[in-house]
């Protein structure tokens, strides 16, 4: 097994799928010769040509619209929106077409598209290059949101997403792009809508995704020494997320916190904690807590940004509080 970065793992997935399936093609800004802002499509232009690795202008609505339309006639587009923050410019296309064509025409059409986009903060990207955007889409029936936390899952989830028939918003956390990990060669998939218990524990369940997984893992490792046994879950699919894995865990531990970079109000963490309260109330020894970003835009200056995002220490404090320590 090779040790490669998330970027290389994603690149691998795209290359494999494009070689295997003529219907798969990529479109987006500067994804051709240049290989994308983060290098995820690097080399694909040389291998597959400009027809299948298609550069566009800054026309995000047309990128998603072209993806949806071509998918409706049988293609398998992988669209890149350079930064997740830009998705507001094509929100309508995602929400009102990609996610609805199957339903509103009662199954006559499908929109099997993958929208890859770079999200997340922590690097001084400022208000328009740092946001965690799944909350903008939590209320959109028909849409699937996938969010890997490591190179292995990135490749397997991207292949599974390209093969899936639903429209998929595929979130790539910028802080994880250069992270390395063992990745099998060749084709494999990681199942969609299936969370993973990354670290088993007895006292509390911490539900995470993407970068917050590492905050939770670090907190869990430190707390082990203090005698708190923390179970950490990586959701991997954020909507519709895997209730069963989370509820089974909470039934064992009796406590839960949900970590998310985005603000609390109306976000993923709100939904996860509501479902735990609704479905597993009788198992709970304490209220479910959310450890989330503050209700602010993302400020530019690094110390300010650090102030508003969750981190290892904030997760740790949360765990201790819910455990009554």
């Amino acid at each position: 097994m090779a040790v490669i970065t998330t970027v290389q793992a994603l690149n691998d997935a795209l290359g494999l799928m494009m070689a295997e399936d003529q219907r798969v093609y990529c479109l987006g800004e500067d994804i051709g010769k240049m290989g994308g802002d983060f290098g995820v499509t690097r080399g694909l232009y040389d291998e597959f040509g400009g027809e299948r690795v298609r550069d566009t202008p800054l026309s995000e609505a047309a990128i998603i619209g072209a993806a949806v339309g071509s998918a409706m006639v049988g293609m398998r587009p992988v669209a890149e929106i350079m930064f997740a923050d830009f998705i507001g410019t094509c929100y309508d296309q995602v929400v009102n077409n990609a996610a609805k064509v199957h339903y509103m025409f009662d199954g006559q059409f499908r929109a099997p598209i993958v929208i890859r986009t770079a999200c997340g903060g922590g690097f001084g990207g400022g208000p328009h290059h740092s946001q965690q955007i799944e909350g903008w889409f939590m209320n959109v029936p028909g849409l699937v949101i996938v969010a890997p936390s490591n190179p292995h899952d990135a490749k397997g989830l991207l292949i599974a997403s390209i093969e899936d028939d639903n429209p998929i918003l595929f979130l790539e956390h910028k802080a994880l792009y250069r992270q390395k990990g063992e990745v099998p060669e060749g084709k494999y998939t990681v199942p969609l809508r299936k969370a993973k218990v990354v670290r088993p524990g007895k006292d509390i369940t911490v539900v995470t995704s993407m970068k917050t997984l590492y905050d939770a893992m670090a907190a869990a490792n430190e707390l082990e020494a203090e005698g708190v046994s923390v179970e950490v879950i990586d959701l991997r699919t954020l909507r519709p997320w895997d209730h069963q894995t989370v509820l089974e865990s909470v039934a064992r531990t009796g406590r839960a916190i949900v970590v998310n970079e985005a603000p609390k109000i109306g976000g993923l963490a709100a939904d996860v904690s509501a479902v735990i309260s609704e479905e597993a109330f009788s198992y709970l020894k304490a209220p479910v807590m959310r450890v989330c970003g503050l209700d602010t835009p993302i400020p530019f200056s690094l110390p300010l940004e650090k102030l508003i995002l969750p981190d290892k220490d904030r997760v740790k404090q949360g765990i201790l509080k819910v455990c009554g320590k």
């Binding site: 609505a61 949806v68 339309g69 071509s70 309508d92 077409n97 509103m104 059409f109």
Partner: peptide
């Protein structure tokens, strides 16, 4: 779908880019 009528959009005109996508798909095919 049987006559390639891709439907209207209540959000007026959103499908202008969908039509582009259908054209692109057909051209690639």
């Amino acid at each position: 779908a049987s006559v390639n009528n891709f439907g209207d959009n209540g959000v007026q005109g959103s499908y202008m880019v969908t039509a582009l996508g259908v054209a692109l798909g057909w051209k690639m095919q």
